[in-house]
């Protein structure tokens, strides 16, 4: 089971703050995204628009990153602190 979190504007666009789902061993982030897009259709548009970073266990990663049971994945829209 992995936890997927959405922050800021993405919470309202996706309509959820977080979801949990099972992943098979050897799953990559790209494969997880395909699965998530089926469950959460707004994600497709969000990812196509670009500008959203994805972190695994609080480190920004690329789409080939392996996903393991217990990981926390987060969708991070453009930062605007300060």
């Amino acid at each position: 089971m992995v936890k997927v979190r959405f922050f800021a504007v993405l919470k309202s666009l996706v309509g959820k703050e977080e979801v949990s789902l099972d992943v098979e061993e050897g799953t990559t982030l790209a494969q997880l995204l395909e699965k998530l897009k089926m469950d959460l259709p707004p994600l497709d548009d969000i990812l196509q628009k670009g500008g959203v970073l994805i972190s695994v266990n609080q480190e920004v990663v690329d789409r080939e990153a392996p996903i393991q049971d217990g990981d926390e994945i987060a969708f991070l829209p453009p930062f605007a602190g300060g």
Partner: peptide, 22 residues
């Protein structure tokens, strides 16, 4: 501003806006 995951939402008379530029 570049690397910290912090986001700003502004409430204006026209509505709510999540700021994307910094």
């Amino acid at each position: 501003k570049r690397i910290t995951p912090i986001w700003k939402k502004e409430t204006t008379p026209e509505g709510i806006v999540w700021v994307e530029e910094h």
